[in-house]
Write a protein that binds this DNA or RNA. Structure first.
Lengths: 255, 255
DNA sequence: GTTTGTGAAGCGATTCACAGCG
DNA sequence: CGCTGTGAATCGCTTCACAAAC
């Protein structure tokens, strides 16, 4: 059943695989776009294309939520929007605080995507006394001193950390102590939190580094194409010498 | 994840699993911190703790790069920093353009984490003519008209899209046509790109929705705990009445 | 002794392929 | 028929556990 032992198996929640949960917002976005165009129904194939996944995966994902489709027809757009919203907990209002109102924090405060989906910026918090009272995105910045009170007064359970790396862990601890149990971390640090607190991180620099890796590989592959030609020639020569083509390892393999 | 279709074996690149590649920047960050504290060597256990992963995973990850450790001792910090940097392609300079200089684009331009790791903001591009010439983070914004020329002149292969969702696909196509082969997308849209182009996406709203899901589940579990208490009481009562405890379903279950 | 590097087992996610239903 | 829903096969990543190296 849903309860089971206290925590431990945090991998699946309510039987829905984590990977599926991560894709539900994607489906929801695509469905919302269809809904705005008054499209009544959609097939797994169409919706999958709109969400950028493959249709078998989408159907499997939906199967974890229940049988919401009609065979031979597809899915009712409005109904699915509701079901996924409910599953994600977006039918309720989530007050959120943003801590660290620098460039990024201010950009987040101004980001429209928050408000549009049940997330409400309840407060902006910064350690700089000079910022206090200054409005950002129409919301006055409050000093860190008020953090605990703000969390408590507003019943905040989701916090966004956009402070410098050095301050992040301390802010995190205060948020958690004050009752926050989900954290979105933009600071380039590993946060350590007690069990039962969820942390997701967004690190711009890491994303770029991953792209750089692949970019470098692409440049290398051009060179490899030439190397392959050489190897092919060698293989042909080796075959003449009575040696099998599977005998040796490509030059790109590590020793 | 990234793209890749006709490529078939795009899952692994140069034999290094994608999941490992995604962690290398994490290790690198932890190692850089150690390096700044002049720590000469580190064990897999210590480094794993600093990077927030488990040590077996870290050792397996490093094993894909080669045998860079010393048994009984650990890893040489400086040497590993170099090896990982090289593997990630950070020993070279990557010029990057940011397209869409709104709140987020400006925040990205100001973000110090780019410059610190071989990424250089070569240009800022925006469609608003009023922005043209205005400096952001010390770099003058250029108009979208110049996009192709900028990419070409600077040999840019990595582009960051921070435009509104509606403009993203079009910008993407222009970037790709001009020669960009890696894209970091902040716009809440699915970008479609030709084979050979990598896309990574960062979506703030999606991250929050995932947190909301888990947050809701936590709230549900508290309810379950209460429900369990009720069920236990009922079961006790039922037992007295001679009825089995498995008769009914918790109210939170779907129909 | 300590710690790495790695086969092998375990596990979750993806994909296939088709039965089942409208 | 068309399209969903899903067992079964497959794939890739994680974790275990220990032999090899220092």
């Amino acid at each position: 059943m849903a309860t089971g032992r206290t925590h431990r198996t945090a991998t699946r929640s309510r039987g829905i695989p984590e990977a599926t949960v991560a894709r539900l917002p994607l489906y929801l976005r695509a469905l919302t776009a269809l809904s705005e165009r008054s499209v009544p129904t959609v097939s797994s194939e169409e919706l999958a294309a709109a969400a950028g996944v493959n249709s078998a995966k989408l159907r499997k994902d939906f199967s974890y939520l229940g049988s919401y489709g009609t065979r031979g027809v597809g899915y009712d757009v409005e109904y699915l929007v509701y079901q996924i919203s409910r599953e994600l907990g977006l039918t309720q209002d989530w007050p959120v605080v943003i801590v660290g109102i620098g460039n990024l924090g201010a950009a987040l405060a101004n980001y429209g995507g928050f408000a549009s989906r049940g997330f409400r910026v309840a407060a902006l918090i910064d350690a700089d006394p000079e910022m206090a009272g200054k409005p950002v995105a129409g919301i006055p910045v409050q000093h860190t001193d008020q953090l605990e009170k703000i969390i408590d007064d507003n019943g905040v359970s989701i916090g966004v950390i956009a402070t410098p790396a050095g301050a992040a862990q301390q802010v995190c601890e205060r948020l958690v102590a004050a009752g926050v149990t989900s954290i979105l971390n933009f600071a380039p640090t590993v946060l350590s939190v007690p069990d039962g607190v969820d942390v997701r991180k967004v690190d711009l620099s890491i994303e770029l580094q991953i792209l750089a890796f692949h970019e470098q590989r692409k440049a290398g592959e051009e060179a490899d194409a030439q190397a392959d030609a050489v190897l092919a020639a060698e293989a042909a020569a080796a075959e003449k010498a009575g040696k099998g083509p599977d005998g040796d390892v490509p030059a790109v393999m590590p020793a």
